[in-house]
Design a protein around this nucleic acid. Sequence first.
DNA 1: CACACTATTGTCAATTTGTCAATAGTCGTT
DNA 2: AACGACTATTGACAAATTGACAATAGTGTG
Lengths: 133, 133
Amino acid sequence: MHGRGQGRWRRQGCSRRTARIMEPALLLLLQHGPAHGYTLLEQLGGFGLDEVNPSVVYRALRDMEERGWVTSCWDDEESQGPPRRVYRISPLGDEVLAWWTQDLVETKRMIDCLLTAYECRMRQDNIDSHKER
Amino acid sequence: MHGRGQGRWRRQGCSRRTARIMEPALLLLLQHGPAHGYTLLEQLGGFGLDEVNPSVVYRALRDMEERGWVTSCWDDEESQGPPRRVYRISPLGDEVLAWWTQDLVETKRMIDCLLTAYECRMRQDNIDSHKER
DNA sequence: CACACTATTGTCAATTTGTCAATAGTCGTT
DNA sequence: AACGACTATTGACAAATTGACAATAGTGTG
């Protein structure tokens, strides 16, 4: 039994959706201006990405830096807590965001395609069950 | 360097999107009527899911069967090739599809949220660069 | 100094994915 | 009847990805 799946779609739920959305969301937030990881973490909620594990966000930021989408340096100004890293979007990051936006448009198109087909099916089923009586 | 990412968004591209779309797409296709894996594989292209590896589709079908979303049995009628498995959607599968549809609506909302913010930013940038002159 | 809060990093098992090969039946050709 | 082309499905594995939790570290409060 199990070994794969078994309630996966309930427990994990939106993991893959998150992955697909979080990085463009971070880039978009950074396009608004430089920011700390912690701030970004909080702002993600605005895109419906609440309850993301901090590790996941920080890891994403570091990965994006490795890929050259963002740059970072330690913040000079001190504030309550340890030194904070400031992230900035790079020109490459701008490009990636533009590309990614297109990708999201494409994804949206696919979803619309599915939803339309589903609603169409439901309507048909209603008509059919009406005829049966 | 690398170890993670490094061109990931180019090479793999839409893997996570695929995962998020393929299973509901399969369920939807099966709601239309029983079908063979091979047929479904071809029909997925209609939802923009061309170039999905056959293994991936067959594996998804088997997983869905394990979870009870679909049932399968060998086809009686012979056709050019080895015996084929016929998949049928189960009542549970109907429910899952309904739930998943809601999930897709939610995903779409998040994407819209992002795209709106992005377009808004682009418009603003245009205005700004216009003022500069 | 103990504690709560802000911030960031490191690690690891478990899951998921893509890929490639293996199996297997049918049909047409040589 | 051996061969290759096409239809179908399955198996197995390395690599990538994820979530969860612990570790580190500075600052302010009582």
